[in-house]
Amino acid sequence: MLGLHAKPAALLDVDGFWQPLLGQLRRMVDDGYLDAVRLDALGVVSGTEELLAFVAGYEHPPRKWTASPPRP
């Protein structure tokens, strides 16, 4: 089930590996199947330092259907 935790999720996009998936996710936003806030919360990084910076600065987006998640 989605939304059960407030932990960051990221894709380490080496050499554009995740670009086809990201294109599909953007299409889902454009077609109204996915909230852009959720896609924006997904970190897309190209290196380990960028990944660590994303995790350190991550803020979970507001919940749509349930109460706010507990802070880690």
Rank of each mutant, 00 (worst) to 15 (best):
A6S: 15
E49V: 07
A41P: 09
G23N: 10
S46A: 15
K64F: 09
L22H: 05
D15G: 02
P8R: 00
S68C: 10
L2F: 13
L51P: 03
D31Y: 01
P62I: 01
P72Q: 11
F54E: 01
G57I: 02
R38W: 10
V45T: 04
K7V: 10
D13N: 15
A56S: 11
K64Y: 07
A53N: 06
G32L: 05
R63I: 02
T66Y: 14
R71E: 15
L52V: 09
S46H: 12
G23Y: 02
L39S: 00
D40R: 14
P69V: 15
L34T: 00
P61Q: 01
P20Q: 07
P69Q: 12
V45G: 07
A41Q: 02
T66P: 07
W65E: 11
V55P: 01
D13A: 09
Y58S: 03
G57S: 06
H5P: 04
Q19G: 01
L22A: 07
P20K: 05
W18H: 12
D31C: 03
H60I: 01
Y33V: 04
M1W: 07
A53C: 00
V44Y: 07
K64H: 10
T66S: 15
T48L: 15
A36N: 05
E50A: 15
V37C: 01
S46Q: 10
P61W: 01
